[in-house]
Nucleic acid binder design. Structure first.
Lengths: 128, 128
DNA sequence: ATTGGTGTATTAGTATCGTAATACACCGGT
DNA sequence: ACCGGTGTATTACGATACTAATACACCAAT
């Protein structure tokens, strides 16, 4: 599928940095299965002018996404959605996830939720 | 139980703001059940001098913890661990937790983990 | 009312962050 | 070799974040 700038919606004065909004929205497209590995992202210039932000801001988002392994840089071509290669064993990746999950659990307990209620929130999220 | 500055460990040049380190460590004491509602926190001066940071930095941590409902201010006495009053229904608090859980799930899926594997990470965290 | 304890408002300095303008290096296709 | 397309390094600037020094307002106990 062709990814176009029209798929992105930026709110410059929302408090959330623009480059992070871009990162999140690209990640959402990937997680949501709306784009596939190999799909090309719009160039930093195309994206920038279409959204009214600077090239470098888009570049920063792409660079961080590349560092996270979400997108791949193809020389002379641009950025493409990366093949979601699962590096490491399941145990290793689970360990990577743990701190993030801990943060959510701390919040849940602060809210006075029981373990079962926290599990139910997770299930609700997974169902999407 | 008496809470003392010795229970806190601050690393000023860790990149993590001092006030946030304090917040996290107070929250950890609460979540870990090592302190109970009504326990008094050290005064901002005592905490500040003992840890070698400014009063105001401690005050900022206390103020944010109060905003989060973790501690309570008792006029003329100081700050105490708040009675974890569960404000709102379970449904409302669950909704509050959801965005945090979503973030963890996005990360988990980026790591190529299945729903079941993500659930297992949560269970591991809850077991602590 | 005074004293000795609380937390906080104000102000200021430094560091870091987010964004942008510009110039550059690189690659593929012609 | 060139041209038109990529992304990026450099630099600058404004805004915000973090910490701190100081002075203040408040309350409980005496």
């Amino acid at each position: 599928m062709q990814i176009t700038p029209a798929q992105f919606d930026i709110h410059p004065s929302s408090g959330v940095p623009i480059y992070r909004q871009l990162m999140d929205q690209v990640a959402a497209l990937v997680v949501g299965g709306q784009v596939q590995a190999g799909d090309m992202l719009p160039s930093v210039r195309e994206m920038g002018t279409a959204l009214g932000v600077n090239m470098m801001t888009v570049s920063k988002a792409y660079a961080r996404l590349e560092a996270e392994g979400v997108v791949e840089r193809i020389r002379g071509r641009g950025m493409a959605i990366a093949t979601t290669e699962s590096t490491g064993t399941v145990a290793e990746r689970s360990r990577e996830l743990r701190p993030h999950m801990e943060q959510a659990v701390v919040r849940g307990r602060q809210l006075g939720l029981t373990d079962e209620q926290i599990r139910r929130v997770l299930d609700g999220v997974l169902k999407d």
